[in-house]
Design a protein around this nucleic acid. Structure first.
Lengths: 168, 168
DNA sequence: TTTACATTTGCATAAATATGTAATATATAT
DNA sequence: ATATATATTACATATTTATGCAAATGTAAA
């Protein structure tokens, strides 16, 4: 029997922090975790260097040499499509209506015409948990690889689409 | 008056080390500079952590989270085209015959038919010193930006095509 | 060659980052 | 709700990386 759970905007503390970290490091060059602590404070998020170290690792954020600042943090292209405008990806994900599972098949429903755009995004991100995707006009089916759980996939997804909640 | 200098394989110590470092980090996951020291020793290159720190910065090598090893060093895609086969780029650059300058114009001569492939590589690398390129069948012209010297460009080029020597 | 200048290096150390551990918070099941 | 299991966090500290400086090496010019 089908069970749809509506796409929800509620985020837990950590997921929200991920989202703000993404926003910050995509919009300005951040050279160190200490610097990031300061920026986060401006967004009313208090945390410690050790937490950030773990967050950045979890989010697959890379540190690369930078002409002016020595080193900066960046979201690798596989995760964040290459663009300065940090809204491209969310412009697309905002068109997701709901996402649910039936067995090892995931079903994503989007606004009319957006299924393909979302599917392309998903394909590009090369989720290790996804064996394949097929997109229609407003629906995407994707198949989880054997041995991969919805939860594992949900974790991965939350790294860059923290707004999208996956049902259990 | 034209002056052509043949593409030479002689490298100085540092440039040679760059080349071996590239080779190593492209062919296996390296988690730390200490680990790299050990691998380099196997290639008869002795050096220190501080030198590697500077080398990796100079080469724009990034450090990214990695499932198994925690973190590994990688050559960003803008610098190294995305491939596991680490010879794609050299397959192309091996077709460079000579490279020289006249004023602020660089001339690259390649084997017949390869000019375009080399030019595409150059364009992709987005050298800040290059204002533009034009490719024929076996010749590429590129224009240095105002304020950029051949030496600056040669330095950049040596980061990923260490074999290609630029005349002074 | 010799001198003058620039580059590269190692050493020692500063700075930055990662992580074991225990405490806290959160979620899940009864 | 209460108990049990999971996940998240800070603290302290270990590990890793960056860098000032002086010595050494390499380069260019006379």
């Amino acid at each position: 029997m089908h069970k749809y759970v509506i796409y929800i905007f509620i985020m837990n503390k950590r997921t929200h922090r991920f989202s703000v970290i993404r926003q910050i490091i995509e919009s300005e060059p951040i050279a160190s975790q200490e610097e990031l602590i300061i920026r986060l404070k401006e967004h009313n998020i208090e945390t410690t260097q050790s937490t950030l170290s773990r967050d950045l690792k979890y989010m697959h954020v890379a540190k690369v040499p930078h002409r002016e600042k020595g080193y900066i943090y960046v979201i690798p292209e596989q995760i964040a499509p290459y663009h300065t405008d940090n809204n491209v990806s969310s412009l697309i994900t905002d068109n997701i209506i709901e996402i649910c599972f039936s067995g090892n098949i995931g079903i994503i429903r989007t606004k009319a015409g957006y299924a393909n755009a979302v599917a392309v995004l998903i394909d590009n991100k090369k989720f290790p948990e996804i064996a394949g995707t097929i997109a229609g006009d407003d629906t995407i089916f994707f198949v989880l690889r054997e041995g991969c759980s919805r939860k594992q996939f949900a974790r991965e997804l939350s790294k860059f689409w923290p707004k999208v909640e996956i049902p259990h």
